[in-house]
């Protein structure tokens, strides 16, 4: 018997595909998969979460300590405006709004679980008039009315769990970013709807929508002054300032709501109270 070396044809054990092409195909496939998954989960969470009774939502927050409201001129006035806003906003019966004033420099306000709205001194000090304050409160109360906090919580928990199962045990945690950016889309929609609802409330209260532009001009000016460039919209939880102002102005125009009018000044004791006097 004769034994000899036979050459093996080269490359039969390796598929000839360019690695970069493979990367593009796989990456776009995985991105589409994750975006679609997050979108579907996000939609279903948004559909189902509002069926959670408000009482249950309230019980979720019952265990968190909350500062007892002090009886100051500031809180008194805030409560007064809130009551007026709530009245025109047509909230479902079981929902109640609790306002909290926080003596912090943060330029922010937010609505959270259990109908709680928190406003910071930092933002209040920048507001030019009562109309802008009413717009701000109406925006946060609109979040409560739409059940946005519980929807966001449900959405966040569902989507993070799904992504953890899908990507948790691989080197692909980075692909989770595709999911995060998809989730922000829902957040921006919520903001837009809250803006629109708040504009309606401000119009009902004052007969014009001057407060809306005042509020967003204030926020936009602060963003610019603090050097926070807004960046790309798909990476933000809120729509860009200019876009919000434009959308609201378009809404007012289409409904023939006057966009200018006499503004109600903030009472002096409120302004003094914010300064800590």
């Amino acid at each position: 018997m004769k034994f000899e070396h036979r050459e093996i044809p080269d490359g039969i054990n390796v598929t000839d595909v360019h690695p970069l092409k493979e990367l593009v195909v796989l990456l776009s496939g995985a991105t589409i998969l994750i975006v679609a998954l997050v979108y579907i989960l996000g939609l279903s969470a948004g559909f189902m979460a509002p069926y959670i009774p408000f009482d249950t939502e309230k019980r979720l927050t019952a265990s968190f300590p909350v500062e007892a409201p002090a009886d100051t001129a500031v809180e008194h006035y805030l409560q007064q405006v809130t009551d007026r806003v709530v009245e025109v906003m047509d909230l479902p019966e079981e929902i109640e709004v609790t306002l909290h004033y926080s003596d912090g420099d943060t330029v922010n306000a937010f609505a959270t679980l259990g109908g709680n709205v928190v406003v910071f001194r930092g933002l209040l000090q920048k507001l030019p008039n009562e109309n802008a304050l009413a717009m701000l409160l109406a925006h946060e109360i609109a979040h409560i009315k739409h059940r946005d906090p519980i929807v966001s919580l449900t959405r966040g928990v569902t989507i993070s769990a799904a992504l953890a199962v899908l990507l948790g045990f691989s080197d692909l945690d980075l692909m989770g970013e595709a999911g995060v950016y998809t989730m922000l889309h829902f957040s921006r929609t919520m903001e837009q709807q809250a803006d629109s609802e708040a504009l309606q409330a401000v119009y009902t209260l004052y007969g014009h929508t001057h407060g809306a532009s005042d509020l967003f001009d204030t926020i936009s000016a602060w963003h610019k002054a603090s050097g926070n460039s807004e960046g790309v919209e798909f990476m933000q939880s809120h729509p860009l300032d200019q876009k919000r102002i434009k959308t609201l102005s378009a809404q007012a125009t289409s409904k023939h709501w006057p966009q200018a009018g006499e503004t109600t000044p903030l009472p002096q004791r409120f302004i003094d109270g914010l300064k800590g006097q």
């Binding site: 390796v14 598929t15 990367l23 796989l26 990456l27 496939g29 691989s170 080197d171």
Partner: peptide, 20 residues
């Protein structure tokens, strides 16, 4: 690079050419 491609393959299935 190849490990990342292989990890993506784990998600979508198919030949793991980067390990071949």
């Amino acid at each position: 690079f190849k490990r990342f491609i292989a990890a993506l393959r784990n998600l979508l299935g198919g030949r793991v050419t980067s390990y071949e």
